[in-house]
């Protein structure tokens, strides 16, 4: 039978805008450290002196024991998939990235399946949100071993990590 409909009259609208780019946001220098490491294929995490967790990318404070995470530790670029989700095939007109069509601007091939994953890199205690490349969606599973796919030209930027691929 389907959904019940609720039809209502529409009154005039008054239009307005709110420029969210007008804010003066402040950030920490932690990402600067992180991307400097990426240039040398190093994944940097912060080390908690309280609970010994290593968080990648680094954080200022430990969310559990609230200690300053001043220590640094380089973790492996190999890790384990702790979670994954699978997109349907992405065709032209299906998805928007910052208002642009990812197929049209060549970010994905027409009909490509995208697999976002959480990866726990060896030596870290956190999930890093990235994407699984060069894998058949049928083979992906929690516990799958993966390694970082580094960009051809490392520039010291977040884009240096293109994603991960099966080992």
């Amino acid at each position: 039978m389907g959904y019940l409909k609720d039809e209502r009259p529409t009154t005039i609208g008054v239009e307005g805008g709110w420029n969210l780019g007008a804010y003066h946001y402040k950030g920490s220098r932690l990402l600067e450290e992180y991307v400097a490491g990426l240039k040398h294929k190093k994944l940097t995490g912060s080390f908690c002196p309280g609970c010994a967790r290593v968080i990648v990318p680094p954080r200022n404070l430990c969310g559990r024991c609230h200690r300053k995470m001043d220590g640094r530790k380089t973790v492996s670029d190999r890790g384990t998939i702790t979670c994954f989700v699978v997109s349907p095939p992405i065709y032209k007109g299906k998805l928007k990235v910052l208002g642009m069509d990812p197929v049209e601007i060549g970010l994905v091939k027409d009909g490509q399946v995208v697999i976002p994953v959480f990866v726990k890199f060896d030596g870290s205690d956190s999930n890093t949100d990235t994407v699984l490349l060069n894998a058949d969606p049928k083979d992906v599973h929690i516990g799958m071993r993966v390694k970082v796919v580094w960009a051809k030209e490392l520039q010291g930027s977040l884009a240096d990590v293109e994603g991960v691929e099966p080992i």
Binding site: T10, T11, I12, V14, G16, G17, A22, Y25, K26, S28
Partner: peptide
């Protein structure tokens, strides 16, 4: 060295269209 950096932003307009309701609509019309 300051631990805080200014974050670069770019214009990112969020658009709104506030419904005025029946009384205000009658006023405007």
């Amino acid at each position: 060295k300051s631990e805080i950096v200014e974050v670069k932003t770019f214009p990112f307009p969020a658009g709104f269209n506030w419904a005025v309701g029946p009384m205000m609509e009658r006023f405007i019309r």
